[in-house]
Design a protein around this nucleic acid. Structure first.
Lengths: 218, 218, 218, 218
DNA sequence: CATGAATGAGGATTCATTCAT
DNA sequence: CATGAATGAATCCTCATTCAT
């Protein structure tokens, strides 16, 4: 009578325990004993389901990335315009809501630090960043096109937005009460709006190759 | 014949060694042995000049904060307009230049993660953040006033800029080649420009020096 | 298939190893390595069963106190008169016999020294001293009452006897061959005898079995 | 111009610092740094005046022994009868007075523990104990002879008194407030009195070789 | 003699990982 | 699968001792 393997359940439990522990103690401080306690499992069991501690970290990073992806998709599904989809992205990353997870934010900061020293973690982090940048570029482009604006330097703007998002996580983890409550999504939306508003109309007839954006048109 | 104390020199050496080591291995990975090697000193000596490892970290954080302050001041000294001073801030934090220090950027990310778990580090981090926010508000306000714009929600904008800066550090440490080279300062400047450009003009003749944004205009 | 805990066994092994090691090298000299070797266990295991070295010391002190208590009780059980019970106490503390433990005596001297510097150890030492003093007072009082003697200054006499016992331990540890073999219990018994012999007779004929010395006679 | 060597002064300073430090922290806890601080000297200087730490300890033990000797001699000088001289000894060791030194008492307990593990310290301790025992025997014998009592088992009684004295030190160091203030000298004197009082008269005429001391004479 | 920095061996403690049950 | 004891390498920290100045 083969028992139903509960490996998946256990792995989720363990990753959840690692998330909670890392959010408070960082990766180095998340000892197997502590993670086991947070998971409600025996320490020995963790190495049955994961080969070593780094494998748990990798699984956690994967899960957080997937979770972020999911947050966006849920919101994007109920968006109909490019503007709404971009807003969906911003909210998925920055808005406080029922599905907000402070532990995940703190853990993500820890992961960012761990990525600096661990090539494998860094690789996952970078792949996630790449996806974010690509998604942002698509979203921004759609907005600009939709509004008849010129499309240029998407990679700069996307990089700026991603940096902003990452920085908001850092501030949320360390200086939440120094910044206005809920400023993150609000300011992101506003900046995007102003950015799009000030982009020039798409050049068809137009003219001088690269009119400086600094000087107002005569 | 008493020896003349060289503690300050040694402390600087040690902090320098910690900076380099942390930039690569993080705080937990910056073992006393490794820091000693990076400093060119015997391991035991580190505990002669610092009580423990955390004291070294605290000293490093203090030094990085002071260094950032100094970077700004140097640039601000040669600025004459509010706009230039704000630009000086952005460049001090984000521009690549001769005094740019990739190790310091990576170490700062590590410190941000360490701040999550270490109350004393967090306190220093927060005090630094407070100073940055206050400085940003002053700089932004000066620009707006100088251009006859309405002054409002400075704390939101300052928080947004600080988040952006912190996020740029994270990307610089982990995803440098995924983002356009030198985008950080450039995009910051551009966003600030557009932000100021779109603010409405200050309420006319009236002209109390600092119209509170809290009270509705008469 | 869960393992059955063997912590108690291990803790006893470790304490035993600490006892042996301390008897020779003192507390500071009882390194974890040395205690582990004396216990036949791996060094790391000691910190699995005890949080730190002081916890081992505290457990050892507790155990020695309990052991002393047990030595007395065994002997007291076969005593029928107050005099015999007092003698049982003296023998339990000072007589050489099959259950005598030179290591315990030497370790107790080390513990006395450690108590001077360690508040927690001192507290246990003091609680043990309190119990000894109380016990001695009861034993002495019973003797005096039983012999129709006046009961007074029990606390002085008890303190004197306890001091004597502690001092015998010190001499046993450091100067065994300078003092007559087995003098300790013998002299204690003799002094107690002479003390009781010279106490004046209790006031009056009265003689309810245990006249309280606190309340004045009716 | 040869400077007056202040070696002796320095050595005394250092020993004094060791005494104070050991009284609180024990020998292992009396680090060179701590002793230097307590002496008001630079750490390096301690190894100029003493070859190593143990040499300081040995010097301290010697000094404490000499100090104890001196305390007795001062008091003995003003004694005229054997009884007074014995009392002088008891007071020199146990009485609270202007020259009482709680640090010395605590340090002596530490030394007793250190003697267990350090052969050289033990040797000094033992020599001191031998002198004490011999002195006590002389004092006791003089009393007995002076009062026309039989002289016997002096070594037992002397050992008992020395044990008592050592034990009083231990209690003074660890349980001062559990015992009546000033009980130590008082009880010692009383016990000696009763001991002498109950010794039989010197056998001239007398008689039965060893009359049991247990049964009262008919 | 005096200073205080420097050294490095040694010790307590932690912890990922293994493994017997 | 599960448990929790066991291992030992790695790490922080201490400290006696040395030594350049």
């Amino acid at each position: 009578m083969p028992r139903k393997p509960n490996t998946e359940l256990r792995r989720r439990q363990i990753i959840e325990g690692l998330l909670k522990t890392m959010a408070v103690h960082g990766y180095a401080g998340a000892t197997i004993q502590a993670v086991a306690a947070a998971s409600g499992l025996a320490p020995g069991l963790l190495h049955y389901h994961f080969h070593d501690k780094r494998e748990m970290l990798v699984a956690l990073v994967d899960q957080l990335v997937a979770y972020a992806q999911h947050r966006y998709e849920v919101r994007a599904n109920s968006a109909t315009t490019p503007r709404e989809r971009l807003r969906a992205y911003i909210d998925a990353r920055l808005a406080y809501g029922e599905d907000a997870n402070p532990d995940a934010v703190a853990a993500w900061v820890m992961i960012g630090a761990e990525a600096v020293r661990d090539a494998e973690v860094r690789e996952i982090y970078r792949r996630a960043a790449e996806r974010e940048l690509a998604l942002l570029q698509r979203l921004l482009k759609a907005c600009l096109v939709h509004e008849g604006k010129r499309v240029r330097r998407l990679n700069h703007v996307a990089a700026g937005l991603l940096a902003y998002v990452e920085g908001c996580f850092m501030l949320a983890a360390n200086a939440r009460d120094l910044v206005p409550r809920g400023f993150a999504a609000e300011m992101a939306a506003e900046w995007v709006d102003r950015y799009i508003a000030q982009e020039a109309a798409s050049a068809r007839v137009a003219a001088r190759p690269t009119p400086s954006r600094r000087r107002s048109a005569p």
